[in-house]
């Protein structure tokens, strides 16, 4: 089965990103594939490379990054949700003349078209945290 995962909940204040990651890990382990992970709303914070979780707490940015790199997962951060929360990749930072960027590979920034495409292309779409 080919899955697209849609995540709404914030990594620091909800369980959505962790539940989605656990699902993705279990799915891949069972031989399924992840077509795309789309981070929407507050879930876009997962993409921030400036995240510093307290000692003893899960680092969801790092965990998703490692999972994405290991399995070559397409992980898309919703652009409109990201920009207004201060999450930018290098090209957006340049475009808006900002001092820094915090979204980098394997995360990419793109629009809702990627959500709809992911939904149409996958066998199943699962929403986490809304």
């Amino acid at each position: 089965m080919n899955y697209t995962l849609v995540i709404h909940g914030a990594p620091a204040s909800s369980q959505a990103c962790q539940t989605a990651l656990s699902f993705a890990q279990a799915a891949v382990k069972r031989g399924h594939s992840i077509y795309r992970v789309f981070f929407l709303g507050d879930a876009v914070h997962t993409g921030s490379s400036l995240t510093v979780p307290p000692q003893g707490e899960a680092n969801l940015h790092q965990a998703w990054k490692e999972f994405g790199e290991e399995h070559q997962i397409d992980m898309v951060i919703c652009i409109s949700a990201a920009l207004k929360r201060g999450l930018l990749d290098e090209s957006e930072a340049t475009r808006y003349d900002k001092a820094a960027s915090n979204i980098e590979a394997p995360f990419t920034i793109s629009g809702l078209g990627q959500l709809i495409d992911g939904t149409a292309a996958a066998d199943r779409t699962i929403t986490f945290g809304n």
Binding site: L40, S80, A81, L115, I116, A120
Partner: peptide, 15 residues
């Protein structure tokens, strides 16, 4: 949520 849903709906229709 509501606006995200409506925007997604519009994108789906444009697809």
């Amino acid at each position: 949520s509501v606006r995200d849903g409506i925007e997604s709906l519009l994108v789906a229709a444009s697809f």
